[in-house]
Design a protein around this nucleic acid. Structure first.
Lengths: 403, 403
DNA sequence: AGGGAGCCTGAATCCTCAA
DNA sequence: GTTGAGGATTCAGGCTCCC
């Protein structure tokens, strides 16, 4: 339970051999720049340098760190090495050479959505964590997750076997009764982790650059240690790893070369703050407010769906007359006038020159809104057109039959 | 447009320099087997040196391949290298040395869900594709996706600027009116792609275990080439890349050292109709058959897409008057009469009481087919309705301005 | 030409105001 | 007071532009 201030190459050799269950490393990524960030109240600026004379210098430094990490690790211990695209491949070559390629366990992909930028090409939205063990006999706690909603309950509960043709079928006894499968715990964790990026507005943020979400560290600690085990973070920064370790009842050792970081980590440890991600808590689907039907209509007019707005369902991708075009789909149990008013009100502040209202059923057939309100275009949904055509056809048939 | 049979190191030098826009590499399995055998028996019997030597051989072979790929690539061209995770880091080091690390564009993560196994540790559920360009001036078509559901529309639509204190605020004019941002088309694609593995049924039909999902290749081809460009796959296997290229209107060159693979690829290419409908007629994987636009229209009228029928694009899920309803969407460069004839002919044997023809552009406005042919319902596409509404609006404005 | 300052972007939060 | 809809804010990365 200590937070130590010095270069980790100085301090690591002072730690006892075979004493640590988990090493988590979040070193500089070889971005070749200095990272700054201010606290929300603007009082303090934290920074760290990630400038190196060459890749060789960087790798040689990391090699020394890794050798020390291996020394202090218990035989059943593991190392999780956090890196990004800048040097991930070189670092994995290094890890292979220090820990042995046979001790490679996983390439964990931390995938997240984040605000975009103007990069040509694909938006970067993942970082890599290499998971190596010290030996084949490493500690690992399998965590099970819920089955995906598309898995049906029979698949989970019923035993299966191959029938005469080699096809897998549900197992039943002679009387046709279902045979239950062995107890199942869920789906084991995969190596692709979708964890929200620590949002700029999150209270969990302490103003230290490159801060990682506590949730990410909790997961690493849970799969590789038991309570009472020791966790080491040689580049602890603001101390996220230590906070996670403390919350989970693990011992911890943190090292950082910046005294500001150490002070911040110590402060966080006395009063740890973990905010629950609203998104993670409620799930992304809770933000989705449209039916499949509405989405299909939006897609077929190449409109972008928009959530969190009760008046507007989407926007056309292209502007008309220099301004955006809002789209609303008439809801069930909503008459056209109401739909129109909602669309108008919501679009008011958006400077729309034209609005599109998709009529899905006919409640006020006699009105001709297109004339009345020249900014609103009313389109009949395909369904409505088909329905009315069929009705008209029936009438015609009846009429001709009458003759 | 050729499929060549020989070792790619023999054939690549015969290809013209600066002639190819995209190289997709999915290297052969035999080297992987070697690698897997070593990791599977998990013994330390194999000395590091032995393994290193075979790895070196492999890398030296790949280095030659990559040099040739670079030679045949146009200056604006790109290479997508699909890696086996066991050697991904070594291959990226190689790619760095051949193409230059400054031409590294993305590490694409292909993430998928998979049935769990009993492996200790995390479930592998991703593969890596490295994306390098030949120069800084590479071709790239950005694909835009929907905004996150947590995003509110103000930040998309409103322009922002810095106020006196350097803080970013929404831009407003003197009267406090919102100032619009430039037109936005959505969020650019990220480097983490969730694409399901091939549907097991489809897999069964082709019998090619290493086959990649067609959607994956389609996406790669779309972001890095335009129609008419040439795609090269030096390890083409069953030819999925070539089929995708052909159906997207790209030229293609495929190479494989296995004569069985070449024969299969050639067969798929000469009769893509049959083979691919077999491959793809298993529900959601029908990505190549229809344009997104057509699929969206079919979905919004709740119609099931039909693959590879030159007259019919889909059927309504529900029958009308006891018989199926065929749907056709008027193609670009096709006049309504032609569309109608094709639909009629294709529907003849299907006993349709009603047919739906979606008009997407107006070539023969004066005709009223609904009267003439009571079995065919003609629906104007949303796009067409919008377009004509805007034109009418313009006319009205001009007229009122005249007054 | 090269380096640094500043701009643009949107995810997910916080905050405000109205009902 | 309570709720919640929707407006406002922050951050980092890659770009462009300017000196």
């Amino acid at each position: 339970m200590k937070v130590l201030h010095d270069d980790c190459l100085t301090l690591l050799p002072t730690l006892e051999e075979d004493s640590v269950q988990l090493v988590y490393l979040d070193p500089p990524f070889f971005t070749q720049k200095e990272h700054f960030l201010r606290t929300r109240d603007n009082s303090t600026e934290y920074s760290f340098k990630d400038n190196w004379r060459s890749l060789e210098e960087y790798l040689s430094f990391m090699q020394n760190v890794l050798s020390q990490c291996k020394r202090v690790l218990k035989k059943s211990g593991s190392i999780f090495f956090h890196c990004d695209k800048a040097a991930a491949h070189h670092l994995r070559v290094l890890l292979d050479s220090v820990f042995g390629s046979k001790n490679f366990q996983s390439e964990i992909i931390w995938a997240y959505k984040r605000w975009s930028n103007t990069k040509k090409g694909l938006l970067n939205s993942h970082q890599t964590i290499y998971f190596y063990s010290k030996s084949a006999d490493f500690k690992f706690n399998t965590i099970y997750t819920a089955y995906s909603p598309t898995t049906n309950i029979d698949q989970i509960l019923q035993a299966r076997r191959r029938n005469g043709f080699g096809k897998v079928v549900y197992h039943r006894d002679e009387e046709g009764q279902v045979i239950l499968a062995k107890e199942k715990k869920g789906v084991p964790f995969s190596d692709v982790w979708s964890i929200p990026f620590l949002n700029p507005k999150a209270k969990e943020r302490v103003g230290y650059p490159t801060q990682k979400p506590i949730l990410l560290l909790e997961r690493i600690i849970q799969i590789s240690t038991d309570s009472g085990d020791t966790v080491l973070d040689p580049f602890c920064g603001s101390g996220t790893t230590l906070v996670a370790a403390k919350l989970l009842g693990r011992e911890y050792i943190g090292i950082d070369s910046s005294i500001e970081a150490i002070r911040l980590a110590e402060k966080r440890l006395t009063e740890p703050v973990k905010t629950d991600s609203q998104l993670l808590f409620t799930g992304e689907t809770s933000y989705l407010e449209k039916t499949d039907y509405e989405r299909a209509i939006l897609k077929s007019i190449d409109a972008l769906p928009v959530e969190r707005n009760s008046g507007i369902d989407g926007f056309l991708r292209s502007y008309i007359e220099g301004s955006p075009v809002s789209v609303r789909i008439q809801k069930q149990n909503e008459d056209l006038e109401t739909a129109k008013q909602k669309l108008l009100r919501a679009s008011q502040s958006k400077n729309c020159a034209v609005m599109i209202l998709v009529r899905t059923h006919r409640t006020t057939e006699w009105l001709n809104y297109a004339q009345e309100e020249p900014k609103i275009m009313i389109i009949d949904s395909y369904d409505l057109v088909i329905e009315e055509w069929l009705e008209r056809r029936k009438t015609i048939e009846v009429t001709s039959a009458d003759k």
